[in-house]
Design a protein around this nucleic acid. Structure first.
Length: 959
RNA sequence: GCGCGCUUAGCUCAGCGGUAGAGCACUUCCUUCACACGGAAGGGGUCGCAGGUUCAAACCCUGCAGCGCGCACCA
């Protein structure tokens, strides 16, 4: 075993072991395995994304779960992949192509050429985040990496669309949707973010028109609006029918300034008479409520803002082509000069922003595809009844609220990067031959399950075209629409020959990712993988995509697999900077995860992140946390180095008869730690696990046990006395065996968190040699996960709980002794003499341990010790510990110190006594609690006596 | 407006019914043969406020305040 370096150097170690794991297929999941299955699908990161702290948190958790499951003997599938991320990716590529001068708008290139550019981009940048996940140590089965636009995956998307269409859940309709004028596409409700903004409320005066059509000189209706530019498209002014102020106006008309036309004054219950003036301008084309009102009152729909956010010709010559915000200024200006602006108020309101483009969305009337969500009831109940468990649990409420108020999903996007809507349609005009296909389609319907057809009739109705039944007459049909699944592309070609055109829209990205848990496993085939690993066990994701992704996956799971997609959902917190702000590129507060890895090591980053990330709470990220992780790795490294310095082979069996109290103490502490860790894991409390491990290893093992063990290990071998020598050697070997036991367990417990360093040390320490090849012999990845020590084990090694207390008492004495020297201003480095006047039995070995821990020159054990007046001392159950100092003793100082201590003890005693003297407490508290209090009282009283005795002696000497 | 979360040591946070904890920062001492990415000792808290339940409350309940986040069509 070569000597290992003083400080841990992660870089080379990490690369070496990751290669090792890959080349040994350690991450590959075998569906044929007889082991119980455990599976996670990765939340696919955007294919063009780079690793940020959110990914680090998220994927570290998944890796921890996967690695722990492997060590527990499960067959683990952690399935990785990436998402094509429609809008995001397209926007990035468009921006780049504009910058490079390749195009101004994607229309310049045309769909095909543009898509070639996107694919080229994907090939170039698509692998980056995958490589970064590997750097982090993620143990994904890379042989199963998927992309949402893989041919096989795209087939799934198409098949699902066809099935939902056939079921009548997908329909096309002209609706008011959220329109992103920058990306020029429709968005779903979930993609709109409401932002509170300080704006203005403009009060506009619309002159009233007399019965004879003349404009009244000074009579107006006053409407208030936050968006004056939309007045160019106003088609009415509405008042509440029950509003007495305006009943006389209903039915009359007013003049719409700047547009030179008159519009009606209508009565509608939507209007709140208490708000503003009680009169509302109605712009059917640019406001969802106004649109509804327009339908109720058959108002025309005048589009004055185009899809690019600029005013249309309908807005009039003065405004045509102006951007909507320029138009706002222009309208206000014009109305002001015409004296039609009554007043302007400051006004705080919510404005919907596109999550992607970060521009205000525009309500826009357009033809879109909508989905009525399938399997709603099963999906709601699964969470309600706990078959799918959320961690933390409180998200179930948010989920259920959304499910109960769910609205149809606008699935079409006016983009090019994505899955094209698989619907072909044709207008039926006298000259077209599209209608001639109908017979052929009907034939296809008899033999194909993935084809369906709808006819739109001239009277506005839609009828399903079925294999059997009466066909509509050509003269009644205005449009034919055929939805085609992946197995019937030949039908599509046939249709195209007859003038049918495929919809140019693509599907919302989430229309593919909601199939992720099964489309990645070979669905619709009933693959071995699906049989073994579906439903998946755990899902780890952010609460920000609860609606986007989690809820929809549940619905897709029930609809297409007939079963839930996962049993547990762990919602991570959101990573913020140390000022509590969200990480963002524009703020520049997002640390480069890779830089952190190269600076501190992946293990350090993982550990630091996990240690500061409590369940379901946002994480304020601080580089200090990573530093802490780095320091911890170094500690682990050096603790193992210490073991190495005492050389030799891995020690085998521990000899029970040679165990010291300290050995038993640390074994019991290990046992305690394992129990706590198991409990914390069961509740997904990873930060608790790391904190327990940290405490156990650093405070209990390194600070106390290792220091105490030096009494055995560091002793020079005695010469001459063969018997003593061999006894000592045996004790040394046994201590090393205990250390090996502890380290072997600790490394395994840490492995899910610190995969690299634990693997390095596992081999470095030679622990793999003790394990069978498939159970830790080759890699720590498959070493058995430590279970709490069982009863037989404890009995065999005499691990009685009393050792915890006994050794704690000794350590307590040591702490007090160290405090003594500190109080007496003895420098840490100075060797001093302590005298112990024992109150109980102190075996010889302990004397040496205590001497060492106290950093004393000598520790004399002297039952008859008579200290000089004023010798500082502490008093424990083991005995009195004196620190005899040279020269004159500071009696007064010592009296003061003991007096202070006595005071503290006294106050503790009164607290407990108060409770014990309360009959309510003694009669009502549980016996166990009562006993604890009585014992505590006894302990404090004992202390008081000892301190008091010392004090009396000091004072006695004084007089 | 409704819902959720947070408020504990200077900072970041654990603890969620029975003696107030960690990391960082701070003070003092120590380069002692695993580790200065270290060791030892120490200072520092009426657990947001006000009530209530209980023998016992940081922890449970009610109200209030401040901060943050979701959801919601009021122009």
């Amino acid at each position: 075993m070569p000597e290992i370096p003083k400080a841990y150097e992660p870089k080379a170690v990490e690369e070496r072991w990751y290669e090792f794991w890959l080349s040994n297929d350690c991450f590959v999941a075998n569906p044929q395995s007889v082991k119980p299955g455990y599976s996670i699908v990765i939340p696919p990161p955007n294919v063009t994304g780079v690793l940020h702290m959110g990914h680090v948190l998220n994927n570290t958790i998944q890796d921890i779960l996967s690695r722990k499951a492997r060590m527990e003997g499960k067959e683990v599938l952690w399935l990785p992949g990436t998402d094509h991320a429609g809008i995001a990716t397209q926007a990035v590529v468009e921006k780049t192509l504009r910058k490079q001068g390749v195009m101004k708008h994607r229309d310049d290139l045309g769909r095909e050429t543009f898509l070639e550019h996107v694919w080229a981009w994907k090939e170039k940048h698509g692998g980056i985040i995958i490589q970064q996940l590997k750097k982090l140590g993620c143990s994904c089965d890379w042989s199963r990496e998927r992309f949402t636009m893989d041919p096989a995956y795209s087939r799934c998307v198409q098949q699902v669309f066809a099935a939902l269409y056939k079921k009548g859940l997908i329909y096309r309709g002209k609706r008011m949707v959220n329109w992103d004028p920058a990306a020029r596409t429709a968005l779903s409700d979930e993609e709109v973010e409401m932002v509170e903004e300080k704006g203005q409320l403009w009060h506009l005066k619309y002159p009233l028109v007399q019965e004879n059509g003349e404009i009244e000189a000074d009579k107006f209706v006053v409407v208030a609006t936050t968006r004056p530019e939309t007045m160019l498209g106003d088609e009415a002014v509405a008042v509440n029918p029950a509003d007495p102020r305006y009943t006389s106006l209903v039915g009359r008309r007013c003049f719409l300034p700047l547009r030179n036309k008159t519009i009606p004054i209508i009565a509608d219950g939507f209007v709140d008479p208490k708000f503003g003036t009680g009169c509302v301008k109605v712009t059917p084309a640019h406001d969802p409520n106004d649109y509804e009102m327009g339908l109720r009152h058959s108002l025309p729909v005048t589009v004055v803002i185009g899809p690019n956010g600029a005013m249309t010709a309908e807005a009039g010559e003065d405004f045509n082509g102006l951007d909507r915000f320029e138009a706002r200024k222009a309208v206000v200006e014009k109305l002001t000069t015409q004296g039609l602006l009554l007043k302007t108020e400051d006004y705080v309101h919510n404005v919907g922003y596109s999550q992607r483009s970060n521009v205000p969305i525009e309500p826009y009337l357009s033809e879109q595809w909508f989905l009525k969500y399938p399997s709603l009831e099963a999906s709601t109940k699964a969470v309600e009844e706990g078959r799918i468990a959320f961690h933390p649990e409180r998200w179930t409420k948010t989920y259920l609220h959304w499910m109960h108020n769910i609205r149809d999903w606008c699935v079409s996007r006016q983009l090019w990067w994505g899955h094209q809507v698989p619907v072909w349609s044709a207008e039926i005009t006298p000259g077209s031959n599209a209608f001639d296909c109908l017979e052929g389609i009907r034939k296809a319907l008899t033999s194909r399950t993935d084809v369906s057809c709808r006819a739109k009739l001239k009277d506005g109705k839609t009828v399903e075209v079925l294999a059997a039944g009466t066909l509509p007459a050509k003269s009644d049909v205005s449009q034919l629409e055929v939805c085609i699944g992946p197995d019937s592309v030949d039908v599509a070609r046939e249709l195209e020959a007859h003038g049918f055109k495929q919809s140019t829209d693509v599907l919302d990205t989430w229309c593919s990712s909601w199939l992720w848990p099964f489309a990645t496993m070979g669905w619709p085939e009933k693959t071995e993988t699906l049989k073994k690993f579906y439903p998946t066990t755990d899902l780890v994701t952010g609460p920000d995509i609860l609606f986007f992704w989690v809820a929809r996956m549940i619905m897709a799971g029930y609809e297409f697999m007939g079963d839930l997609p996962f049993r547990n959902v762990y919602f991570t917190g959101i990573i913020r900077d140390k000022l509590g702000r969200k990480m963002s590129k524009s703020l520049g507060n997002s640390p480069d995860a890779l830089e952190l890895i190269s600076k501190y090591g992946a293990d350090a980053l993982r550990f630091g992140t996990m240690r500061s990330a409590p369940l379901g709470q946002d994480v304020l990220f601080d580089e200090k946390d990573v530093e802490l992780g780095r320091n911890f790795c170094n500690k682990l490294w050096n603790a193992c180095r210490f073991r190495q310095l005492h050389g030799g082979e891995v020690q085998g069996e521990i000899a029970p008869e040679l165990l010291s109290g300290y050995d038993k103490w640390i074994l019991l502490k290990l046992n305690q730690a394992i129990r706590e860790i198991s409990a914390a894991f069961a509740e997904y409390r990873f930060n608790e696990v790391t904190q327990t491990l940290y405490r156990f290893f650093w405070s209990e093992y390194c600070d106390w046990y290792v220091e105490a063990s030096k009494a055995v290990l560091a002793q020079p071998t005695e010469r001459g006395n063969g018997q003593a020598q061999s006894g000592q050697e045996a004790r040394k070997a046994n201590t090393l065996a205990v250390i090996d036991f502890i380290l072997s367990h600790t490394l395994r417990l840490f492995h899910p968190f610190l995969p690299f360093i634990t693997e390095e040390l596992w081999h470095g320490m030679g622990y793999h040699q003790d394990m069978p090849p498939q159970l830790g012999g080759t890699t720590i990845m498959f070493a058995p996960w430590p279970k709490p020590l069982d009863e037989d084990f404890c009995a065999h090694y005499g691990l009685d709980g009393c050792y915890l207390e006994i050794i704690d008492q000794k350590f307590e004495l040591v702490s007090q002794g160290r405090n003594l020297r500190r109080e007496a201003n003895v420098p840490s480095g100075k060797k001093v003499r302590f005298v112990l006047k024992p109150g109980g039995v102190v075996p010889p070995l302990d004397q040496e341990v205590l001497r060492l821990l106290l950093n004393a020159e000598t520790l004399d054990v002297d039952p008859g010790y008579q200290p000089k007046q004023g010798t500082p001392s502490v008093h424990s159950e083991i005995g009195e510990l004196f620190l005899p100092l040279e020269g004159v003793q500071d009696v007064a100082g010592e009296v003061a110190r003991l007096g202070k201590e006595l005071e503290k003890i006294q106050s503790e005693i009164s607290k407990v006594e108060q409770k014990l003297n309360n009959p309510n407490f003694t009669t009502k508290a549980p016996a166990q609690v009562l006993l604890e209090h009585q014992q505590r009282l006894g302990e404090w009283q004992g202390k008081r006596e000892r301190v008091q005795a010392a004090l009396d002696r000091l004072k006695g000497g004084e007089s």
